[in-house]
Design a protein around this nucleic acid. Structure first.
Length: 557
RNA sequence: UGACGGAUGGUGUAAUGGCAACACUGCAGAUUUUGGUUCUGCCUUUCUAGGUUCGAGUCCUAGUCCGUCAACCA
């Protein structure tokens, strides 16, 4: 970009801290995912922020799995998260787990008990909820609030030993049941769960809650700037309370507004439903807003990082138009994608004055955006070709620059042709288009003096590679599915996936590799799907090209 | 009617008391062997009411609207 944005509010805070020599100018951030699902584009914003901020100020970033709820967490998710972060182009300084700190956290809890700042409560979940009060009504003290330090220490030790059943007891901080901030009304610190943990196995049957794990983990790692989303703002006083009472390293929490994208959902809970209930093929379904889905769809790390930079960071709620993401991926793919020709909806075209049994190889530039055109490849050309069905019209409207009886058009990288005739079957379908070519109009050596408005793509029939092409559209029909009445899944776009079984590709696509990015000329950007095999090539459409013609057509009607 | 936060074009984000700008979108046009790219131009903005000030998007007061919080989730 030629114009630089001003610093965002987090950069300002960190710059000031660094200038003031806070923490000796040291900057250490962390990205703290819970391994209970795959990362999505919203996490990408957070990743770019945390890693980007640290890098900008000469610091580093820890990856820390917030794995304090064994019921939902799995190693599969840990692996996918690591893969996605690295794919995005970031490397953490340390890989940590909140579960690494279980022993330390247990000790911290004992310290609070000893200071008279935590107690074991025998109340049930329902009783605790009832005593919590409401935002406008203060809560009531638990009858177990005033147990002695000795009794609390003993009970807490026995909780750890497994003497009690799930839900029988909890450890709570003793703060203020009348606090205006609900999170300060004696929040739970530990609960009993006789559940195996993906890392610690059966070692523990008590697990710390988020509020008693996150801030302490930050502190243990000496995180300087702990950046999270806005909904944790009301947790900050509690974050600070624990650090103050424990007298440990004071990390600070800062909040920013999470990313919202229209026409999709962004909560792991909903994404999990889409996966489990088979509305999509998996977490990496190309229609999913997950990082793995975007990767499979053909997005590049560069385009996602650029997106994060473009949307900025602030503290106000925002909804980013899906078009911004599309703009970013087009921008990058336009620069790097190899131009190739693929006919998605083939109709036969015969060049009647081109000799039968003859094939010539025409040079074709790979990418006009590159210095040397990205090199050239050879395209076979002969008497029979495939062209796009929509590039021929019996009765063309005004400003239609393609093929119609009597009209001329250029075949990209080849010759100008004129349509003389066509063949129609009994159902009124065009089965063949018959043209003559102008030998003097050969691409790069055109001496014909003829100028045509339109250029269309084509594929040589005898050497064409049949393939499958998958076209994607937005997953939902409405801007904010989560906000609609009823089930968000009722608003899934039934046409979000269109499979084209018989596309015809130019022969060079036989050598397509998994990471290759292509522009199918005039059709969009595509990549090989993970389900593709050498015998059956499968391509995903990443995004369409901008199409001012279809817009114009609509306005003409 | 509790606590905390927020409000700048259609959408985002800047402007840090001194000419409201940048990007995306949209619309027009130029170029084009991709109706792509590129280039040019245009549309559209400070929630309301007071106040402070030579000067307010920015500071103050009041209001309006929006968001978050009452999981043994994170």
């Amino acid at each position: 970009m030629s114009t630089e944005k001003g610093p965002n509010f987090l950069e300002e805070i960190i710059a000031e801290d660094v200038n003031n020599g806070k923490h000796g100018g040291r900057v250490l951030t962390r990205f703290p995912p819970e391994p209970n699902g795959y990362l999505h584009i919203g996490h990408a914003k957070s990743i770019c922020l945390n890693f980007g901020l640290a890098k900008k100020f000469g610091g580093t970033t820890n990856l820390r799995f917030d794995d304090t709820n064994p019921e939902k967490e799995e190693t599969e998710y840990v692996e996918s998260i690591k893969r996605d972060i690295q794919w995005l182009g970031f490397q953490w300084a340390n890989e940590f787990y909140a579960s690494d700190y279980f022993e330390q956290l247990y000790e911290y809890a004992r310290q609070l008990i000893q200071k008279g700042l935590a107690y074991v409560d025998d109340s049930s979940a329902e009783e605790i909820a009832a005593m919590k009060g409401t935002p406008t009504e203060s809560g009531k003290n638990s009858p177990f609030r005033d147990r002695t330090v000795e009794e609390n220490l003993d009970l807490f030790a026995r909780m750890r030993k497994g003497e009690f059943k799930d839900g029988e007891k909890v450890l709570r901080a003793k703060i203020d049941m009348a606090a205006a901030n609900m999170h300060l009304r004696d929040p739970l610190m530990y609960r009993i769960k006789h559940t195996a943990h993906h890392r610690t196995g059966d070692e523990w049957c008590i697990y710390p809650m988020y509020d008693f794990a996150h801030g302490q983990s930050d502190s243990i790692e000496r995180i300087t700037h702990s950046i999270c989303t806005l909904e944790f703002e009301v947790h900050r006083p509690l974050y600070e309370w624990f650090i103050e009472k424990l007298e440990i390293f004071a990390s600070h929490q800062y909040e920013f507004a999470r990313l919202n994208l229209n026409f999709t959902v962004m909560s792991k809970r909903r994404l999990l439903q889409l996966v489990q209930e088979k509305f999509v093929s998996g977490w990496d379904d190309p229609r999913m807003p997950t990082i793995s889905g975007l990767r499979r769809r053909g997005f590049t790390p560069e385009s996602i990082r650029r997106f994060a930079e473009m949307i900025g960071v602030a503290r106000r709620e925002n909804v980013i138009d899906f078009g911004v993401l599309e703009f970013c991926v087009r921008e990058h793919l336009n620069a790097i994608a190899k131009r190739v020709m693929v006919v998605l909806d083939p109709v036969k075209l015969v060049i009647t004055n081109y000799p039968e049994g003859t094939t010539e190889n025409l040079p074709a530039e790979n990418n006009p955006e590159l210095e040397d055109g990205g090199g050239v490849r050879e395209l076979p050309f002969s008497r029979e070709l495939w062209i796009e069905r929509e590039d021929f019209k019996l009765n063309p409207e005004k400003k239609y620059f393609r093929l119609a009886p009597g009209l001329m058009v250029r075949l990209k990288h080849a010759y100008i042709i004129k349509c003389d005739d066509y063949v129609m079957d009994d159902n009124g379908n065009i089965t063949e288009i018959r043209c003559t070519y102008i030998p003097e109009s050969k691409s790069g050596h055109d001496t014909s003096g003829i100028h045509v408005k339109g250029t269309i793509h084509w594929v040589n029939k005898s050497t064409a590679v049949p393939c499958e092409v998958r076209l994607y559209d937005r997953l939902f029909r409405v801007e904010n599915p989560a906000a609609e009445e009823g089930d968000f899944k009722d608003h899934i776009n039934p046409h979000s996936l269109e499979i084209i079984a018989n596309a015809m590709a130019e022969p060079s696509l036989r050598n397509a590799a998994a990471d290759d990015k292509f522009q199918f000329m005039r059709k969009g950007y595509f990549c090989l799907d993970t389900a593709s095999t050498p015998d059956r090539l499968v391509f995903n459409r990443t995004v369409q090209l901008k199409d001012s013609w279809s817009k114009q057509k609509v306005s003409l009607e």
